[in-house]
Amino acid sequence: MSFFEQYLRQEIATGLVILVVVILRLIVTKAVKSYAKSHTVMEKRTNLVIKYIHLLISILAIISLIVIWGVQKDDILITLSSIATVVGVAMFAQWSILSNITSGIILFFSFPFKIGDIIKVHDKDFNIEAEIIDITAFHTDLMTQDGEHIVYPNSLLLQKGISIVKPKFEDKEFMD
């Protein structure tokens, strides 16, 4: 009996997993891009969310392939719990990175403000009024009227009160 005959079930299941991954990636990409288009979300933010979801799909596919090829479920659970413990300890040490990434995703989907908006951050120690220049996974770039460039963590934008300020009208003379 050859290798291909001996593991025919696993080979077919592997092919199906790969097919499902490709189809899921295409569906997710189209869904996120259509959502972003309908809500006028920046392309950088859209691509970032797509990358996060693709990573999750890939991790689930790898776990599925491990199960298909006969790794014992108890061994998988022990390995995953060990990895989760190590990642949990590392993330506890770097909780701000995780909170900023999570905040970036929340800002993407809730979309309370957009690039070009002038916002006022209500902080009792350091009030900021500035224009949003860019929103990334970790932080938001702001530019004050004085030309000061401020990099503000996304997690703080969700924690602080934010007002969207309407642009001030310039004094212009009307001519007939």
Rank of each mutant, 00 (worst) to 15 (best):
37 K>A: 14
37 K>S: 11
37 K>F: 11
38 S>E: 15
38 S>W: 08
38 S>C: 08
39 H>P: 01
39 H>K: 10
39 H>L: 02
39 H>C: 02
39 H>N: 09
42 M>E: 15
43 E>W: 10
43 E>S: 12
43 E>K: 15
43 E>D: 13
45 R>W: 01
45 R>A: 03
45 R>Y: 03
45 R>P: 05
46 T>G: 05
46 T>A: 11
46 T>I: 06
47 N>G: 10
47 N>M: 08
47 N>S: 09
47 N>D: 13
47 N>H: 10
48 L>R: 12
48 L>Y: 09
49 V>Y: 04
50 I>H: 04
50 I>F: 06
51 K>S: 13
51 K>H: 09
51 K>R: 13
52 Y>F: 13
53 I>Q: 01
54 H>T: 08
54 H>A: 14
54 H>L: 09
55 L>F: 12
55 L>V: 12
56 L>H: 05
57 I>H: 01
57 I>D: 00
57 I>S: 01
57 I>E: 01
57 I>Y: 03
58 S>R: 06
58 S>P: 00
59 I>E: 07
59 I>K: 03
59 I>Y: 09
59 I>L: 15
60 L>S: 11
60 L>K: 04
61 A>R: 01
62 I>F: 11
62 I>W: 04
62 I>V: 15
62 I>H: 03
62 I>Y: 04
63 I>N: 07
64 S>R: 02
64 S>E: 05
64 S>F: 05
65 L>C: 05
65 L>M: 08
65 L>E: 07
65 L>T: 01
65 L>Q: 02
66 I>F: 07
66 I>K: 01
68 I>K: 01
68 I>H: 01
68 I>W: 00
69 W>Q: 02
70 G>A: 07
70 G>M: 07
70 G>H: 06
70 G>W: 04
71 V>Q: 08
72 Q>F: 10
73 K>V: 15
73 K>Q: 12
73 K>W: 14
74 D>G: 13
74 D>M: 12
74 D>C: 06
75 D>R: 15
75 D>P: 00
75 D>Q: 14
76 I>Q: 03
76 I>S: 06
76 I>Y: 04
76 I>C: 04
76 I>N: 02
77 L>W: 13
78 I>Q: 07
79 T>N: 02
79 T>H: 02
79 T>A: 15
79 T>W: 08
80 L>H: 03
80 L>A: 10
80 L>Q: 07
80 L>M: 14
80 L>S: 08
81 S>I: 08
81 S>F: 14
81 S>K: 10
81 S>C: 11
81 S>Q: 09
